[in-house]
Design a binder for these strands. Structure first.
Length: 416
RNA sequence: CGGGCUGUAGCGCAGUUGGCUAGCGCGCAUGUUUCGGGUACAUGAGGUCGAGGGUUCAAGUCCCUCCAGCCCGACCA
């Protein structure tokens, strides 16, 4: 992509009301635009990042036999009445339609997925089954805040699993837990699995917490084995011994990027999601639900991977893998730069090419701000013998000169 | 939802005890200039002063109501 064509531009300053780090950087760099408190537009670069996050999640959900579906965000009141959550969920957005019909914008989808699965499942032979979707959720938060971390409309992946018995739920639950850890690893996030309130159905749910000063949650975690508990339920204090390995427990602020629950039959009972077992006996399906917030992940990653100059995207979710800069005004050199851009692009390398007629300083600053992992500069200074300067964003290594065709070769290899 | 702060050009801000045609910087347009860390100069476009009401000869400025944004707290199924 040519930077001169990019719809969204960077800005030098950002509204003084933006205090949260992720909002400041993402707005300044032109990844998102705020429409109102807790509601954001994803601009081209931001949308690429969001989609990459969602795709990693999608791959890992498919790998645990999740089947992707897409349920409506607009949902009928009756379903929520059935479970008593029409009044119980105070962040539910409610609205009226034609003929006095009432609706809710989905803040979660148990009320929709359970009757859906009921239509497909009659026998123990139909179980287990797991479906998921990646969709915007709506929650009427009394106080949206912290940029992408707590919004009123936000991207969510929600997986629901259905089992013939609790033992099967338990083993699938562990599988999903492992898949979640893999997802966060792939995005360079160190997630701690923390025990949290399990509601009325099981002792604990599990939260995936990423340590950072700007986190909303307080957790206790073991410095060695990373066993963790949310402070809400924890009886530990900093300095206690870890019950698993005996090392020291620490206290830390963290962002919750995922949460998994064993719902058991809480929803299958009201919707009569039942099946006949081997003995022809009617049983309720046993359920689990598993959520990850891609937009919140995007915010969390910025909160963690940045420096004074801007964002430093982890490779797996960076909007582009190479930021190619042309500095100077020599047309011959610019042509060389352009042909490198063409060759890289034709070979499937994701390149953002700064072809703008802007000063070197401006291009370099913008490049830091955008945070693309590798920067390649072609200018008069480096151009002798077809050389270009290559530098990793955020790394400690110094820039090095490479032949232009080596850069191509290296990128093709990296792609494998 | 309670408490606090804020609202003047796209963004950042100034605007004195109410007083004339509402300014500055960035950005934007045009021209010249410069070209490895937001180059310099010139010219220019851009404003319901958050909205409504009130006080006054006169309101960006004072008063009331509302709206929006941010922060702290509560909340987070």
């Amino acid at each position: 992509m040519k930077q001169s064509q990019l719809f969204a531009k960077t800005s030098k300053s950002v509204s003084k009301d933006e205090v949260s780090l992720n909002a400041k950087l993402l707005i300044k760099a032109g990844f998102v635009d705020k429409l109102m408190a807790g509601v954001y537009t994803y601009l081209p670069l931001g949308l690429i990042v969001l989609r990459k996050i969602q795709n990693i999640i999608r791959e890992e959900m498919n790998a645990v036999d999740g089947q992707e579906i897409l349920m409506p965000a607009l949902t009928p009141k009756e379903n929520w009445i059935k479970t008593g959550r029409w009044d119980a969920i105070d962040v539910l957005f409610k609205l009226e339609g034609a003929g006095d019909k009432e609706y809710a914008l989905g803040s979660t989808h148990e009320e929709i997925v359970t009757p859906l699965v009921k239509k497909m499942v009659n026998s123990y032979k139909d179980l287990p089954v797991a479906v998921y979707q990646i969709q915007d959720k709506f929650r009427n938060e009394p106080r949206a805040k912290s940029g992408l971390l707590r919004g009123r409309e936000f991207s969510m992946k929600d997986l629901y699993s259905f089992h013939a018995d609790e033992a099967d739920l338990d083993s699938y639950y562990e599988k999903v837990k492992a898949a979640y850890l893999k997802i966060f690893q792939r995005m360079d996030l160190n997630a701690i699995v923390a025990e949290a309130s399990g509601g009325t159905f099981s002792k604990y749910s599990h939260e995936f917490q990423v340590l950072t000063e700007n986190g909303e949650d307080l957790i206790f975690y073991c410095e060695k084995c990373f066993y963790g508990q949310n402070k809400e339920i924890s009886e530990y204090k900093a300095g206690d011994k870890c019950p698993r390995c005996g090392a020291k427990m620490l206290e830390g602020k963290a962002i919750e990027v995922g949460n998994i629950f064993k719902l058991k039959t809480k929803f299958s009972e009201p919707f009569d999601l039942s099946f006949l077992d081997k003995n022809g006996k009617k049983k309720f399906a046993v359920m689990g639900c598993y959520g990850i917030g891609p937009s919140r992940i995007m915010g969390a990653i910025v909160e963690i991977h940045y420096d004074e100059a801007g964002i430093i995207w982890p490779t797996a979710i960076a909007p582009f893998s190479v930021h190619l800069l042309f500095l100077g005004k020599d047309d011959k050199i610019k042509k060389q730069c352009e042909s490198l851009y063409n060759v890289l692009s034709e070979n499937g390398i994701e390149v953002l090419y700064d072809d703008r007629d802007a000063s070197p300083g401006e291009k370099l600053k913008d490049s830091d701000l955008l945070g693309i992992p590798e920067r390649v500069i072609i200018s008069e200074r480096t151009f002798s013998d077809g050389m270009a300067e290559v530098k990793k964003r955020g790394g400690k290594e110094k820039a090095k000169l490479m032949k232009i065709d080596e850069i191509l070769k290296k990128n093709l290899e990296n792609r494998k």
